[in-house]
Design a binder for these strands. Structure first.
Length: 414
DNA sequence: TGTCCACAGGAAATACGGGGGT
DNA sequence: ACCCCCGTATTTCCTGTGGACA
């Protein structure tokens, strides 16, 4: 060991990195790290570039009634993830409140974020919490009790109350109870004028809703189109200016990222994440961000997404996924039905000393994996050889080995 | 035409684990 | 400390089903 040697190495590396730095302020590559006011200022710049113009105009006319002491009806908003629904709405509602307070119109808005799937109970509980009407419970208190507390808390308030409920369709099971409460019961019991803003990323969510709720729910609808490539370019350029040094980006990179992101979802968050990843990669190699860097970043991005999704999933789901992979490898080109995969699953559970769930429950696990699009399952009939769900692994082939390794580790197999 | 496979997937029953009330 | 109640997760039980085969 030669301490001076390693020191010299470190110093030269650090100096080198500093002189070649391309990231100026990495917080601007990740929204989570920005404080509220910074987020809003970025947002305002984006809006000033005429992005989301039509949506904001629509919102304005929908809520204009408030300034005339009118009661606008509820609003349903559709749009895929990363189309800026949440940010646009909170920006707009803040602005609206400001305007109203200048006119002395009492108004309040609350944001209920259901970005992770949650049962009716937790949704109500969260709602109660945002009103300070109750503490956070895990269990052990009835839905009725929660509703009463919310009502009690709001009983005195008489102005407008805008409830902005993000990702409504994440309310699993009993969605009707939740919505019935909001749509029918709550308005009758409180004096405030309630306006619901329901955000969802599926277009057809009111379809399988209790018809009684639906008829009560007079809705105005607003659709957030996915960003197109031009919008995304605006968004990226603003970020680049804030986060990166001058000349850190080769020409064509912005266009490329924008094109990639708009092609598969029009998701702005994803576009920014891709930019961030590219920047990190470029910085590590001390180069500019080139077109190849972007390709590399995109590949890694996909990999990370799948693997972290799996890693953080409940064990049973991981075991189910492992069994699907195992079965796919084992039976190579034969078609996979639920039965075979279930046998595999039982084996894996034994190895991982996990309690195997019943076939019925296993079927539900498969459906869940389908929702995450880790696999595709389709019910087919093979005549006298029965009916089953054909299961096809939907993982990029390059990832199968990685995923398998990770699952094996997580489940302590072998 | 009827049979029967191998499951799907709905409904009811049961197990679980945690909070509230006393 | 005890018991009871609640929502949630899983199991048990069950009916349904498309089409190959006889």
């Amino acid at each position: 060991m030669q301490p001076t040697h390693i020191r010299a190495k470190m110093i030269s590396r650090i100096k080198y990195m500093v002189s070649n730095a391309i990231i100026k302020d990495r917080r601007y590559l990740d929204d989570e790290q920005l404080i509220r006011s910074e987020q809003l200022s970025v947002l305002e710049e984006i809006f000033n570039a005429n992005v989301r113009d039509t949506e904001i105009t629509e919102l304005s006319s929908h809520f204009a009634g408030i300034l005339r002491k009118d009661h606008p009806c509820h609003l349903a908003i559709w749009g895929k993830t990363g189309t800026g629904k949440t940010l646009t709405l909170s920006y707009f509602l803040n602005f609206l409140s400001e305007m109203c307070s200048q006119e002395n119109i009492p108004i309040r808005h609350e944001h209920l974020d259901l970005s992770t799937p949650c049962p009716c109970f937790r949704a109500l509980n969260d709602l109660a919490c945002t009103f300070n009407a109750s503490k956070r419970y895990k269990k052990g208190i009835s839905l009725e009790e929660l509703m009463l507390r919310i009502e009690a808390k709001l009983s005195e308030y008489e102005g407008y109350l805008i409830l902005f409920i993000d990702e409504v369709d994440n309310v699993k099971r009993d969605r009707d109870t939740f919505l019935t409460f909001l749509v029918r019961r709550l308005p009758q019991r409180i004096k405030a004028r309630l306006i619901l803003v329901l955000v969802s990323n599926r277009l057809n969510w009111p379809d399988h809703l209790d018809p009684r709720v639906k008829s009560f729910l007079k809705l105005n609808e607003l659709i957030f189109e996915p960003y197109d490539a031009v919008d995304l370019q605006h968004i990226l350029r603003i970020r680049i200016e804030k986060a990166l040094c001058k000349n850190a980006v080769e020409t064509g990179v912005v266009e490329k990222i924008a094109a990639m992101a708009s092609m598969d979802h029009g998701d702005a968050r994803k576009a920014v994440a891709l930019l961030a990843k590219s920047a990190y990669l470029a910085e590590k190699d001390s180069t500019k961000i080139t077109l190849e860097t972007v390709d590399k970043a995109a590949a890694e991005f996909d990999k990370d997404r799948y693997l972290s999704l799996l890693r953080s999933a409940p064990v049973q789901l991981q075991a189910a996924m492992a069994s699907v992979i195992q079965a796919t490898i084992q039976y190579r080109d034969k078609r996979l039905g639920t039965g075979r995969v279930y046998d595999e699953y039982k084996k894996i559970c034994r190895q991982a000393s996990l309690r195997a769930m019943t076939a019925r429950a296993f079927g539900d696990l498969i459906s869940e994996l389908d929702i995450y699009s880790l696999l595709r399952s389709k019910v087919i009939s093979r005549g006298r050889y029965g009916r089953t769900r054909e299961i096809v692994l939907e993982l990029p082939t390059s990832l199968i080995a990685d995923a398998w390794e990770m699952l094996k580790n997580n489940l302590n197999l072998n």
